[in-house]
Design a protein around this nucleic acid. Structure first.
Lengths: 245, 245
DNA sequence: TTTTAAAGTGTATCTTACACACTAGTAAAG
DNA sequence: CTTTACTAGTGTGTAAGATACACTTTAAAA
């Protein structure tokens, strides 16, 4: 019996090695879609590619997954390496696998996206020269399937904006109602009624109105608000905190 | 000049080769989360793994991406190979990349999910013996991170059910209101009011009531409905057709 | 003919969404 | 000091949609 068992084990081991070994390996990339909000408009961060193929053309911020990291970590590392940006929370979006999407070699790419405040995230990386913000509708044509990736990210962002309090965490620490409304209007690409917007936001009960005013925006000045992270967290845990703008 | 150009080209080519060559390659897998609805309850399709590691344990229906296909195609192929199921539309869900998720070798897995009608999709594949339906809450513990994958799929399904007319396409061709309500109640895991549910569904205006009755469910019998695909498509194109149950 | 089991149906009340226009406050200009 | 200019800030009425709720109908089986 022992012999048979050992034989079986040997066969299994063999099978195991064979099984994985005969499979095709591929390169796995991450591409970061970084939306920026500058209190007025929605922008996107792009980079000039410094290697072939497609050297010199604009692209998303991308790089390859390494053996010792997971995809979330790869996205953070790549973003930091190419722009110097740190502490950006990105969310995984979609995995693109068209056979010839990268003519250099069979590469599958996982897209990540984030929405950040332009002012409070100034670049300081070595590659700063080659990365810059573009207005969303003035972005150049991108390499590979990067345009498609962006379209998908915009769709997700929009859907999110309609049903989740996206943006609260992503705004500058203190902001005016007008800025928050601008953000929503940029994402949804339509005008909202000021009174209804404020009523809705207030009914969510996650903002704290400060005594402080932003006097740069008008003669009268506009009250500043901060996001109440604790209240927000509690609501998310309780009921998912889905609403509708 | 020509010489220089050629030199540059050579350098570029070299760089190109180097660039891709020094990157780590990985195995890419797909795992299919197939939810089934049998007019009563939500089930999940699992398979007994027939190779090491973890041979003999239950797992999702999975396999590896090949060079000549994209991920969507891989998911369809793998599902068909292991269960004989055809014509299943699956949607990509998430890409799992924890470093040691598969102890056999570094493998990244892309999960796909679908919701199908159990009755109208009987197995006929060679592997039929090792695949079977489990009640969602009676499913065994699965290998790797497959439990986590299922949790994510349930969350997505639930979210979808709240805002999209999921299920209409996925039900048997003819169905009763009670069956549709059962489906929603299974997904959302809560009871709904019969009258309110019917009113809501009718207000969506995508079902056609037949003269035919299903006499198996009660003495009185229940009217059968069919899904109006054209109307549905039109609504999706016009306004995305988001609603709220 | 009676029993049984699920189907089918309507309304009143509450909540939320939406449309809509004027006053308030401050700094800068004159 | 007064006027001007500019954006912030505010409330209500109406319409639509969400929710709660219980009895009658139908046809087969006993």
């Amino acid at each position: 019996m022992k012999v048979i068992n050992d034989l079986e084990k040997a066969e299994d081991l063999n099978m195991q090695l064979n099984y994985y070994d005969k499979e095709d390996q591929v390169l796995l990339a991450v591409d970061c879609i970084i939306f920026g909000f500058d209190k007025e408009n929605l922008k996107i961060l792009l980079i000039k590619r410094n290697f072939e193929p497609e050297k010199g053309r604009w692209s998303l911020i991308g790089g390859f997954l390494k053996k010792n990291e997971n995809l979330d970590q790869a996205a953070v590392r790549v973003l930091n390496a190419l722009t110097g940006l740190t502490d950006i929370y990105m969310e995984q979006l979609y995995t693109h696998s068209k056979i010839d999407r990268d003519p250099g070699q069979r590469t599958i790419s996982v897209s990540y996206y984030a929405l950040i405040d332009v002012e409070s995230h100034k670049f300081d990386g070595i590659q700063i020269d080659s990365a810059r913000w573009f207005e969303l509708n003035e972005a150049p044509n991108l390499i590979f399937d990067h345009n498609e990736m962006i379209q998908r990210a915009i769709a997700r962002l929009r859907r999110r904006a309609l049903t989740n309090p996206i943006g609260f965490e992503l705004l500058p620490e203190k902001f005016t109602m007008r800025q928050l409304q601008n953000l929503y209007e940029s994402i949804l690409d339509k005008k909202l009624d000021k009174r209804n917007f404020i009523n809705k936001i207030n009914s969510l009960d996650v903002l704290i109105k400060l005594d402080e005013k932003d006097m740069t925006v008008s003669r009268k000045g506009a009250y500043l608000y901060v996001f109440d992270k604790d209240k927000y967290q509690k609501k998310v845990e309780e009921d998912g905190f889905i609403f509708k703008i």
